[in-house]
Each structure stands twice: as C-alpha cells, then as structure tokens.
Design a protein around this nucleic acid. Sequence first.
RNA 1: GCCGGAGUGGCGAAACUGGUAGACGCGCGGGACUCAAAAUCCCGUUUGCCUUGGCAAGUAAGGGUUCGACUCCCUUCUCCGGCACCA
Length: 994
Amino acid sequence: MARSYDFVAVEAKWQQRWAEQRTFRTPNPGDPDFDPRKPKFYVLDMFPYPSGAGLHVGHPLGYIATDIVARYKRMTGSNVLHPMGFDAFGLPAEQYAIEHGVHPRATTERNIANMRRQLLAFGLSYDWERELATTDADYYRWTQWIFLQLYGSYFDLEAGRARPIAELEQRLARGERVVTDDLRVVAAPLPGSAATPGSAATTRPWATLTAVEQRSVLDQQRLAYLAEVAVNWCPALGTVLANEEVTADGRSERGNHPVLKRPLKQWMLRITAYAERLIADLDGVEWPEPIKLMQRNWIGRSEGALVDFALDAPAAAAAGAAAGTTAPEPIRVFTTRPDTLFGATYMVLAPEHPLVPQLTTPGQRAAVEAYRAATARRSELDRQSGQAEGKTKTGVATGACAINPVNGARLPIWIADYVLMGYGTGAIMAVPAHDQRDFDFARACGLPLRAVVLPPAAWIAEQGAAAGRAAPSREDYLAHVGDYGVPYVGEGESVQSRHGELVLDGLPTAEAKHAVTAWLERRGIGSGQVQYKLRDWLFSRQRYWGEPFPVLHGPDGETEPVPEHELPVALPPMDDFRPVVDEDLSRPPQPSLGRAPESWRAVVRDGVRYTRELNTMPQWAGSCWYYLRFLDPRNDQALAAAAAEHYWMSPPAAAAEPATSPATESTSAPALTTPARAGGVDLYVGGAEHAVLHLLYARFWHKVLYDLGHVSTPEPFGRLFNQGYILAAAFTDERGVYVPAAEVEERDGAFYYRGQVVRREYGKMGKSLKNAVTPDEMFKEYGCDTLRLYEMYMGPLEVSKPWNTRDIIGVHRFLHRVWRNVCGEGEAPDGACLVETPADAELRRLLHQTIKRVTEDLDRLRFNTALAALIELNNVLVGRATLPREVAEPLVLMLAPFAPHVAEELWQLLGHERSLAYAPWPRYDPALLVVDEVELVVQVSGKTRGRVRVPVAADLAAVRAAAEADPKIAKHLQGLTIHKAVLVPGRLLNLVAG
RNA sequence: GCCGGAGUGGCGAAACUGGUAGACGCGCGGGACUCAAAAUCCCGUUUGCCUUGGCAAGUAAGGGUUCGACUCCCUUCUCCGGCACCA
C-alpha cells in the first residue's frame, strides 16, 4: 500500500475521472435521476470577466470557498446547484480587440477557454454542463427578452409594482386614469414629476388624444424609455459612459480620456420607481450590514416637503412678460427641513434652472449670463470634485426676489453652482443658520442669517467660546447667530418661527416639520415629498461589443419592439467594429452598429421601412440575471422553466433541512450554510466592489420579473457574503515606479531590485502593482490541493490578507503527513499503519471533538479554524503507531471538501470504489464528548494562579475547597480573606481576596 | 468632511454570548536520524526580570464599567473601504 504522495498524478487522475463520470452534474426537477426528497442549496460565485491576463492566485479565493461549501453540502445530503459562467460583453474586450486588431468574439472565446482551463485545474466542482457566457446568442436572446418585458411594462404607483403597459392603456381608455394637457398621467404620477401641489391641472379624455399623443403618453410610462439626458460622453472612446466608468477628475477609467457632459437621447431604465422597494426589501435578506447600508445610501431616500415660493411683484411682472403669460410659475424647492422655513434668508437656483433667464433683472443680466456660461464650460463632474464641501462657494444675484410663504419676507434669488439641477427641483431655500452649505455661501456673499432652531446649551457654550463670544447664551445666539463660527444643523426646538396663525415656536423639529407641512398643504403651496438620490439607469452604449436592443425605429420616430419569436437580434458580423471618434459635439454620435450592413440595419414590415436601434446594452445587462439562467440554461422556451425556478430559488421548506449534527442547531444565528430564509440564491459570494451597482441592478430586474410573474421570489440573493482581497507585497523604486515583485531580494530587512534599494508596500494583487502570483506556478510546485488549503488557511474569508508564498509549505506538509498516516511511508511502512481494530477512548473522543469543530466551522464559513482542527487531529496521529480505520475514514471525508483530489485518492486506497463526493458527512456522538472531570482555572483576584481537576458537577463549595487545598493557590491566598468566589462551571473559579 | 470596517508575537492568525490571550501554521533556535545534505521526527519560541520555579507587563493609546475586558462604554491615533455641495 505504501506509496508516496504524487500530487501531480493524483490531481490529474481525479479531474479526469470527475469529468468522465459527470460527477457534479446536477439534475433538475423532472430529470429521471432527480431526488425531490433532498433539500436544495444554490451556491453561486460572482462570475468573472474573462480578461486576457488570466487568473492570479487572488481571483479564486471565493471560488475555493464556495466549492468547499458545495462539496460539504453534497455530503450532508443536499441537492447542490453550483454553476459557473462568463460575463464576456463589454468595453475591455472591445478595447483589447481594437488594440490587437482581432475580433472581440475571437479574443473572448480564447480568454474564456484559458480561464475555464485554469478553473478546472483548481478542481472546482461546478456543473460545467450549465456553463454559459453572456455573449452567447442563446443567452442574450433572453437578455433582450427581459428588456422587452421592461419596455412592455409601466410602474403602477397605487399598487407599487410593475404591470403590462396594455393594462395602463385599458385604464386610460376606461377613464380610470387621465391625461393632463401636457400629456402626463395624473392619477398615477411618477416620482419626481409630481403635479403642482394643490393645483388641479386640466385633463383630457383619452379618446381625444391623437394616435401620436397616445403613443407618446404610453412611451413615457414604460420602464424602458427614451429620454434626452445629459450623459458622460467620451469622444476618444466614441461612447457614453456610466458614472462608474468615469474617474473623479472627469476622465474615462479606461484609457484616461477626457469625458464631457452632453445631452443625448438614450434608453433609460426606470429603476427610480423601485427605490422604495429596493430599500424596504433589504430587511429581508441576509447580507452584510455595511453592504445594505451602502445600498441605502446610494438610493439616498430623504423625506421632506416641496414648497412653492411666489415671485415678488416686480419679478413676477418681468417673468410674466418674458414668458408671455400673466401668471408666472412660482419657484418650487425641495427641503428636508421645512421646520426652518422661517430661517430662509435667500434662495438659490441652479445656474441651468429654466426660470433663470426670465427672472434675471436687466442690471444683473450680464453677470448672470457670464456665470451661467462659466458653469456650462465645466462638467458636472468637475463641479462636484473641484468644488466640494468646504471650498469657497461662488454665485451671482439675479436681482429678483421671491416671497417666503410663511411670513411674506422678500428673499433675494441667487444662482450658484452648489445647487445641482439634477436633484430635487434644482432650486433651494437657503437657511444659512442651519445648513453648512448655505452658511458657507452666505459668508462668501455677505448674506444675512436668521436662527430658528435652538441648539443645546452645551453647543452654544462651546461654539460661542470657540468664536470668541463674551457671554454665549440663548439670547446671544439668537441675536448674533452670524457671529458663531459654524451653523447649527441638528434638531432642536423651533424659535423665532411664528407669523399669523402659523406658530412653530416651542415645537421640536419633528413636530415643527409636521405642522408646517400641514399648513402648506392646506393652502395649496406645498406638500410632503420623498426624494431619492438614485437616478434612472442610463442603458445605452454606442459600442459594438454588447447586446443589441430588440427595438426598431419607424419613419415617424416611433419605436416598435421586435417580436419575441424573432429573438435574438444577433450582433451583425463586422470587420470594422471600432467606434467613431468625433470631437465635434454638434454632430450626433455614430454608434459602431451604424456601419453594420444595410441588410441588418433595415427591416421592412408591412411595407414600412424600419431601422434597428444602433446602440447596445451596457456590460451590466448580462450579469443582471445570469443566476436565473443557470437554473435551466438550455431552455429555449423560457429563460428558465417554472419548476426549476421554483425549486432552486424557493426559501427552505420549514422542516426540509436535516440537522447535520445533533447539537448544532442550538445557536441563535442561522448558519451561513443553511438555505436563505428569504429565498433566492442560498449563498452568493463575491467581492465588495459590487456592493452597489451589480447588486442593485440585478435586484431591480429581479423585482420587475417578479411583478410580471416570471420569478417566484422578490429578491435574487437571499444570502450574500463578501470575501476579502488577497494582498501582496509590491515594491517601488526611487521614482515611485513598481518593479516586478518576484525579482526583489531581501537582505537584512531591506529590499533590493537589481542592486537598487526599493520600498515595500502592500496592495491588491494584480498586473498594475507587478505583484501577481499565478496559480500555474503554484500547481507545479505544490499542487492545487495545497493551494486550495493555503488560501483557506490564510485567515477568515471576509478579511483581506497578504499572500506569502513562503507559508504554503505548512499546509503542504500537512497533506504529506495525512498521506503518510493513512498509507505509511516508502516501500516499507515503518509502523504507521491502518488497522481494523477500534480506536481507544482518548482517540475516539478527539475524533468526535474534531468532527464537531469542523462541522460547526464549515457552517460558519470559518475554513481557517476548520483546517486547524484537522491539522491538530492529524498531528496526534503522527505520534501513534497505528491508525484505526474508524479514525482514518472520517479524517479523509472531512478533508475532502478542502483537498478533494488527495481525499479521493486516499478514499480509494482505503478500499472504496465510488467517489466520496456524495459519501455521508461524518457525524459526531455527543455522548462521547461528555467528560466527568474537568480542569478549572483558579484565579485569585482575577490573576490565574493555578488549576484544579474537579468533577464536572462540582459545586462552588467543592471547587473552592479543592482550590484552597492546592499549595500553589494557597500561597497566594495566605494572609488574605476571600470576599467573594465566582464559579464559571467548566471554566474557572475566581477567588476575590483582600 | 460624512458613513462603514479593522488595529493581537518576527509574520499569517486563534480566542463561541465578558471567563486560562497567542490554538494552528510560517519563520527562528536547539536536538535526533545521516559520512553529509534534503526530507522526516522531537523539544523550545509574547516581552522583560530573577540562573529550579516564579514574578511583572502585555491585544493601537488613554480613561471607564465589572469579581473578571481582545470582547462592553467614552476620548484619541493609524490603516482600509464607500460616499462626497443630494438641500
């Protein structure tokens, strides 16, 4: 039996065998070998982008972890769905293809092949028969289908969910919804496009609208709609970019090209309609709290009020004349602090605000125009980064004034770029005494302050002293608020806030908000309002390598969806797929698909010539729903069969989960490897860099599909886990340039590269820091089982930790020791040998303790400590002459999820013919863990002074007697009286003496 | 600036709900085996002080609660991540 551990041969053998025997093929409901009695477990990795560089050892950290979970869950009797695919559309592939003069299809296929090879070499137990790539026509057919669902739906505000747009049309026809003269549906207004508070707009019956008008009304309600918006345009890349593809200083993340704002008509997805549900449903998923918080912050819900400020008489007359009407529009603002309305001392409009030209007085016109022009030259991104909070604020007075509705005060109207057109209404009331930005601006422009919220006395004292006030007090603050160095932005009792019947004085902030909002609503000049930072999702790209939109454009500018049965709209083959680079912003952009063959671009229907949409979808589209396609990847009738979707996505049935071990279910927190209660993917593992975008977009699509009845759960990912990064030492020379880390030598604590001293730092492993370590070199040296073990042994999965090749040897030795313990060593095993005799009581207890530790650690995803337990058990075996089969087999089975190749080989050497992939996980016997004597630590006044062996059931008196009898302990008690004795059963005894 | 997360030996880390700080591994020191080396096995390894055995200090720093604090509370520092004029 003796034979040395040849990891190269063992790993090749078992990878081949798993593939041949389709060991990890997962049957679906309805398949002949599907067992419906087993509980299900869907464990998913965030699928990778197949880059040309291939994997380094940092990439598969999460994949190894999920593989361990998948293998463990198979052994504990679950049906495990564990698939893998590739997110292959997008800018990097296209840019790479352009730079190398190859078609992105070719580079993508090559990169996928290389990455699949690398993943296979890790021995990951994916069901490769479910592999998919977002670039497959069979896949993006359904991406396009989902787009058509979005296009064919609207958001019913009353029901709070999406419905087919045909239902809206019926309601309009029946008069259940009405249309205003500016073609808006008022009975179901969209968030942010609310009708004038209190004013009854004139409406028109549906039948009186022309066909064009009806179409326009419906198009505006769709979840996918065309809109003219200011977009990030990158002339050098010839495409618009999402905000996340643009760096803080207004350049493209890829290529570092300048990015400008320009208005373009683009496809938008109405994610804002789901803002409320996207926040609310976070409560039901088991995700890390910081990730939930980041999503909430990104959505940015804030409650407040819309308030209308009428223009004062001269301004109204001027604006009325300019607009050619008699009743000029009031200025509407959004505020989260309506309780501070009495503290407003001026107003600010965004420079782009449409009312600005009308109300600017002749004397100010030149200055205002100059300021607006200066603002327009700078992109919004510039404005945000260059002009952040704390920097000097600029602005210009328009010369006009508005009337504060609560007290009739005249408020000068300014324009300033610290007010953004894109949030709220693009106008604010400024309360400099209680808002940092307004305070800064008021200081810069010499505007007055008025205190209307009373700060706590301590605040007044502290800030008053800091500002050099002689006698800070409530009266001093109210009279001289401008002399205090900072605004008070907290909550407090309202003061100086009464006029006529409206009295806020004495009310705490929350009540004051209520009172003033109710007052505004009664008078029809304001209303409560919820605002979100979240914007609708810009969904068009002008590039080639993405999903084509299944949309046709008619001769009169109408859009027509491509019928479902004609999907997919395939990407046309093109030799020249480069974007059109055009610095001239007056010309419309020319998407790459504009140069597709005429036969692709033009479609004739009923004698009418349509042209195809020439934009493509952004990279996020494909990753929004891939977890659903894995459920049923070859289905050509639906994106996934209902039975498969139900089975794999459902929350666990109440009693479906068998306890893996008798004593593990006592803990309150659910183990990380029980199916997610919320339903959806049971364990989704990936990097925290997708905390917002991917996870938010996918949740949004999932909710639309849920509303339309295509999926059965409201959330896609019931449980989320973020793995940390693998860091590695990187080295810079004196110019600050990175040098290849592999060639750096260490001598006496200093680091040298080609004789030059270099500086060490730590960073995410990768090409840019020149510190990548490839798995291929590790496989060659140690084998993939060792690499898997090392990555899990480095530390907890969720923390980032530095790679250190030197340390790998530890787990490698461990595998060798396991091998020797089971097989003996060399040609003549020197004693260490498998025996069929039972283990002695001590060893048996250790085994069962180890099973308990490993099982519980796996349930908590604590792979590092699970391995430590296995190493401890194995180290004990090293010192023993024989190895009872009773111990050898559980040891091999417990090792299997971590190091599957060597475990399979040992399992076979132990005489088993079948793979251990579905062998039952070892169970421990709680009775064997019971001890009748324990060693207690004895402390004297909190300091450990000795230990005593006592029966487990010993009471305080007995333990105390035993402790005091111990000479070492007695020495520390000499001359002291024991005031108190604390016994923690099984742990310690503390004698407080003095 | 605001919001999160984290600071434990020479290094990666462990310590479950407040109960022996440093499990396990790397490295290092010593020993066995060997002609020798590798591999393997054994012993030691937080720091300081006393040459058995102890004593003292110690989980970023300072304070607090407690019989008892890496763990809870307050203040400060450092690092990492997110957001950044969102009214």
